[in-house]
Simulated assay, not measured.
Amino acid sequence: MPRVLLVDDHAAMRLGFRTILEASGIRVVGEASTGSEAVVAAATLRPDVILMDVQMPDMDGIEASRRILQSGGSAQVLIVTTFDRDDYLFAALDAGASGFLLKNADPEDLVSAVRVVAAGDALLAPEVTRRVIERHARLAPPAAPRLAVELTEREREVLRLLAEALSNSEIAARLHIGEATVKTHVSNLLLKLGARDRVAAVVFAHRHGLA
């Protein structure tokens, strides 16, 4: 099970997250109430996942995430915020966060998000996925990248499921194959598309009618 660090300036919110996660068998290894405390706690506790609020005193969660991720640790950052704002969303992704979730998410969605991010997958709340795709599509060069090699039918299936925001484990279950096999397919299709990450691959799929 992933080891989690909770970062939020409201003690009641941290208690709520702790209760939900520990009830699902996920270990909470520490808490922090400011961005500065989070940077120190991440270095000393070495969690697998950091649940990071955005608006906090001393240092906000975006800057804290940037410092933690640039330090070279293995922690994944999952932004959990009340505010559905584009500036927070894109700043968090630019800082290297692996996920963005709203605090009104159902408890089971929070637990699932922690597990998905801990496994190395990216996760976005359904409310913001479309905005991320549209933003990347606007920023992408007008000429479509050429495929070095045509995608196999299985790779096309995996790409379509990526476009549905499914994690590797969910894709594996849908296609009745192993999760390691899914990771191989994802790596291969990213290479063939010349896409730097899953989001870029999803943008390609939507722009070219593959999703």
Rank of each mutant, 00 (worst) to 15 (best):
172 A>W: 12
51 L>C: 09
13 M>T: 11
211 A>F: 13
161 L>T: 09
145 P>S: 04
183 K>F: 07
31 E>M: 12
113 A>N: 01
149 V>P: 06
34 T>M: 04
156 R>H: 09
77 V>T: 01
203 V>N: 01
182 V>L: 04
197 D>L: 08
50 I>H: 00
162 L>Q: 11
194 G>M: 13
13 M>S: 08
64 A>M: 02
127 E>P: 03
106 D>L: 14
93 L>E: 00
155 E>P: 03
177 I>S: 00
211 A>H: 09
112 S>A: 15
7 V>A: 06
183 K>N: 05
168 N>I: 07
116 V>K: 15
202 V>G: 01
120 G>T: 03
99 G>Q: 08
127 E>I: 07
167 S>Q: 08
79 I>P: 00
182 V>M: 07
144 A>P: 13
202 V>R: 11
176 H>D: 03
9 D>K: 10
165 A>V: 06
206 H>C: 10
176 H>K: 14
77 V>I: 14
104 N>W: 11
50 I>D: 00
151 L>E: 03
121 D>H: 07
43 A>G: 01
11 A>E: 08
126 P>C: 13
136 H>Y: 10
12 A>I: 12
8 D>A: 08
146 R>W: 15
176 H>L: 12
183 K>G: 00
49 V>G: 01
12 A>K: 10
128 V>C: 07
106 D>V: 04
23 A>N: 12
98 S>E: 02
157 E>L: 12
193 L>C: 04
59 M>Y: 02
73 G>L: 12
55 Q>P: 03
61 G>F: 09
58 D>K: 13
136 H>R: 13
45 L>P: 01
59 M>W: 07
82 T>R: 14
9 D>F: 11
106 D>H: 15
112 S>L: 15
74 S>C: 06
175 L>A: 01
195 A>C: 05
87 D>Y: 07
70 Q>A: 13
10 H>D: 05
176 H>R: 09
115 R>A: 06
157 E>H: 14
142 P>G: 07
211 A>P: 07
16 G>C: 11
144 A>Y: 12
189 L>W: 07
194 G>A: 09
4 V>G: 02
195 A>E: 05
147 L>P: 10
138 R>L: 14
20 I>N: 00
121 D>E: 04
209 G>Y: 15
136 H>M: 11
147 L>W: 14
